[in-house]
Design a protein around this nucleic acid. Structure first.
Length: 359
DNA sequence: CATACGTGGGG
DNA sequence: TCCCCAAGTAT
């Protein structure tokens, strides 16, 4: 027996499901890739990446046998790059331990790198028809409004309440549809701001709407102010080649390539900062020749203003990475082959556009 | 349990 | 310009 709420949302979904490339007769692999790409990322952003990815890595084995570098290149621009490396590692685990097939069980899925509580239940329900409820940002907001929950979202207490409610309405055999329907509803009607309650198929079941509280719910925790850092980067040119360094596998932009540099200390000049950073990281003395560009960027938890400088190396010195990071001298035309975050890609593009004189 | 982790679009 | 936030996960 379906609950009236489940009946309503499934009927709405049957008419209003967004036509997305991973919907329809998609493989479990396709569902997996789409779910990971969609983590904290908008549908419109994901679609072109998804299509390119599936063209190049159509199945688990193809992905497992690719290089990490190429995987990151296909991910470049999507952000949260640990997702790409985890996908690649998970593919290798699937190839070795599961004959290249995704497991169908939520608990087994949960053991793969990059698959957490949400994604495990999403794949189990969408790709394998399992009766699993799940919570993402959209579903949390929809459910919180349905029960007019005053509990701040993304807390263990809130998740317990919401998951319990979701399970009582989960239509057996149609959990995947139910979960996707809730997400589509959250994305298109039950929006964070200005929800369109007048056309919502669930308004008759929605306590927040009945109470006129749809703009007050869900309750969210106050945000913190983002710190701002001034950083420098060196475009080091020698014999027509540019020096690139690979970032550590863990942490910000893990495994991506960059023009080396780092954070300025208090009261430190840009040039002094750059020389110090290059000395610390590469045990290398450089000559700072001229300003190359200024780039502003906001990451999730801080902002940066990056000052890039054209630099040279006096008389035959050579860089030697202190932290064991990889270094490469790269021709202009090769820059495109190295996965980079947004700022470094902008610098690389500018190098190509301007055609740097080589010393 | 709090924090780190990217980027782009909309108001 | 600035703030919000979007199909979360790992530590």
């Amino acid at each position: 027996m379906l609950s009236p709420l489940a009946t309503q949302i499934l009927a709405w979904y049957a008419e209003n499901a967004r036509p997305l490339p991973w919907r329809g007769r998609s493989s479990p692999y396709a569902v997996w890739i789409s779910e990971v790409m969609l983590q904290q990322t908008r549908v419109e952003t994901v679609v072109p990446y998804y299509l390119r990815w599936m063209e190049r890595f159509p199945d688990v084995v193809t992905l497992a046998n690719a290089t990490e570098e190429e995987v990151l290149r296909y991910w470049e621009g999507l952000g949260y790059y640990a997702r790409a490396r985890n996908l690649w590692r998970a593919a290798q685990k699937l190839q070795q331990e599961y004959q290249g097939q995704l497991p169908q069980d939520r608990a087994a899925l949960r053991q793969l790198p990059g698959i957490g509580a949400y994604t495990a239940a999403a794949i189990a329900s969408i790709a394998f028809g399992r009766d699993e409820a799940t919570l993402d940002g959209n579903i949390r907001r929809v459910l919180a409004r349905l029960i007019a929950s005053q509990t701040p979202l993304r807390t263990p207490q809130s998740d317990r309440e919401l998951l319990q409610f979701a399970r009582t309405h989960l239509p057996s055999g149609q959990a995947g549809e139910f979960n996707q329907a809730m997400m589509d509803l959250g994305a298109t009607i039950c929006a964070p701001r200005q929800p369109r309650c007048e056309i919502c198929p669930l308004s008759a079941h929605c306590q927040a709407f009945q109470l006129g509280l749809q703009n007050e719910i869900p309750v969210t925790k106050p945000k913190k102010v983002l710190p701002h850092y001034v950083v420098t980067a060196a475009v080091i040119v020698q014999n027509g080649q540019f020096l690139l360094a690979q970032r550590p596998k863990r942490g910000l932009l893990g495994g991506m390539w960059e023009f080396p540099g780092g954070k300025c200390l208090e009261n430190e000049s840009l040039e002094a900062c750059l020389k110090r950073e290059i000395r610390e990281e590469l045990n290398l003395g450089i000559e700072v020749e001229q300003p190359f560009g200024v780039y502003r960027h906001a990451y999730t938890h801080y902002r940066v203003t990056l000052h890039a400088f054209l630099c040279s190396i006096p008389n035959g010195n050579q860089p030697s990475p202190i932290e064991g990071q990889a270094l490469r001298w790269v021709e202009q035309q090769e820059l495109a082959h190295f996965p980079m975050g947004k700022i470094d890609r902008q610098i690389a593009r500018q190098i190509l556009n301007e055609g740097i004189k080589c010393s």
